[in-house]
C-alpha cells in the first residue's frame, strides 16, 4: 500500500530526512517513533505530499510527488495540530470536507458519530477542547474510508479513555485491511497499536522491524512505583530475586521497578500471588526522547 524509497529532505543546511526507506502492507500498522526533531513529521508530510522531497513515495502504486491529488484520494490524514476552521461547527466541518471529497452529508454525520461527537454537532470548532478537536480531525480523516490512514501524533492531547478509543479505532482499521502510518511519542502505546516500528534519529532510519522486538530493547523502560504498606522489604527482595537484571530500589514508602511495557501486569501478579498487598501504583512513562536517544546510541 505504501512504499518509501530513499526519501530525503533538507531545510537549508539541516538534513531533516536522510534516505529513509520502508514499506507498509495492507492491514498493517507502522509506528514512526523518534525524539523531537528526528524527522517524524517531515516523513509524514512527505507521504501526504505537503512538502517537496527527494526520493520516491508510492501510495497504492501512485507517485505522491507526481500525482498528489490522486494519491490523496487514498489517504486520510490527521495533522499534529488537528487544525480545522474555528468558525465552523462540528457538523459544518465534516460536511465541508465531505463535499471536498464528493461525499454525502450522511457520510459526514456517520463519521462525527463514529468519533463520539454526535451530541455536539452545532458546537463551533473554536469552542471544542483539544481532545474533541483531535477527534473531529480524525473524523475528517476517516470520511472517505481511505485504504491508508496517516496520523501525526494521534494520541497527543487525548485523555486515557480517548487513547483507548483510538487504539480500538486503529485496530478496527487494521482488521478491515486498512494500512495505518502513525507517528507517536507514547512508547507505551506502540505494542498496543503497531505491528512494526520505524525509529528515526536525526533524519535517518536506525531501526525498522516488529514492534515487539523494538520494545524489548533495554532503553524503552517505564518506572513502576509500588506502595506496599509494611512489607516493602519483602517485596523488594522478591522483585530483586525474580528480576535480577533490573535495578529495583526503595524510595521512601515506594518500591521502584524499571519495567518494559508488557511486564507491569506480571509484576503486580507476582506480588499478589505471594500475598503482598499493593496499596497504590503509579507509572512514570518512558521519557520518549531519552529512551530513544539511548536506543539509537545502543543500536546504530
Amino acid at each position: 500500500m505504501l512504499q518509501a524509497r530513499a526519501v530525503a529532505k533538507s531545510y537549508g543546511r539541516v538534513r531533516a530526512l536522510d534516505g529513509v526507506s520502508f514499506e507498509l502492507a495492507p492491514g498493517r500498522v507502522l509506528a514512526v517513533v523518534g525524539a523531537n526533531g528526528a524527522g517524524k513529521s517531515t516523513l509524514i508530510k512527505s507521504v501526504v505530499a505537503l512538502i517537496r522531497f527527494e526520493g520516491q513515495i508510492l501510495v497504492d502504486g501512485i507517485d505522491v510527488a507526481r500525482n498528489p491529488k490522486e494519491a490523496r484520494r487514498r489517504i486520510g490524514y490527521l495533522s499534529q495540530e488537528a487544525a480545522l476552521h474555528p468558525d465552523l461547527t462540528v457538523a459544518e466541518t465534516a460536511a465541508f470536507y465531505a463535499a471536498l471529497r464528493g461525499l454525502s452529508p450522511e457520510r459526514a454525520r456517520e463519521c462525527v458519530e463514529l468519533v463520539g461527537l454526535g451530541s455536539v454537532p452545532e458546537r463551533r470548532v473554536a469552542a471544542l477542547s483539544g481532545g474533541m478537536r483531535r477527534r473531529l480531525a480524525l473524523a475528517v480523516a476517516l470520511l472517505a474510508d481511505p485504504p491508508l490512514l496517516v496520523l501525526d501524533e494521534p494520541a497527543s492531547g487525548l485523555d486515557v479513555a480517548a487513547r483507548v478509543e483510538l487504539r480500538r479505532l486503529i485496530a478496527d482499521q487494521r482488521a478491515a485491511g486498512k494500512s495505518v502510518l502513525l507517528s507517536t511519542h507514547w512508547l507505551e502505546d506502540v505494542p498496543h497499536i503497531a505491528d512494526d516500528v520505524l525509529v528515526l534519529d536525526r533524519g535517518r532510519a536506525v531501526f525498522l522491524g516488529p514492534a515487539r522486538e523494538f520494545l524489548e530493547a533495554p532503553a524503552v523502560e517505564s518506572r513502576l512505583y509500588l506502595r506496599i504498606n509494611g512489607r516493602s522489604q519483602e517485596a523488594l527482595e522478591l522483585l530483586r530475586r525474580t528480576m535480577p537484571q533490573r535495578s529495583v530500589q526503595r524510595l521512601g514508602d515506594w518500591v521502584v521497578v524499571p519495567v518494559r511495557a508488557p511486564e507491569k501486569a506480571a509484576i503486580l501478579h507476582s506480588l499478589v500471588d505471594e500475598g503482598i498487598p499493593v496499596s497504590d501504583v503509579r507509572v512514570e512513562e518512558a521519557p520518549a526522547d531519552d529512551a530513544l536517544r539511548r536506543l539509537t546510541e545502543v543500536d546504530p
Binding site: K45, L50, K69, A83, L84, L100
Partner: peptide, 10 residues
Amino acid sequence: GTLATLLSQP
C-alpha cells in the same frame, strides 16, 4: 494550520 488540512484533501 488549516492549509495542511485542506491540501491533504484530493
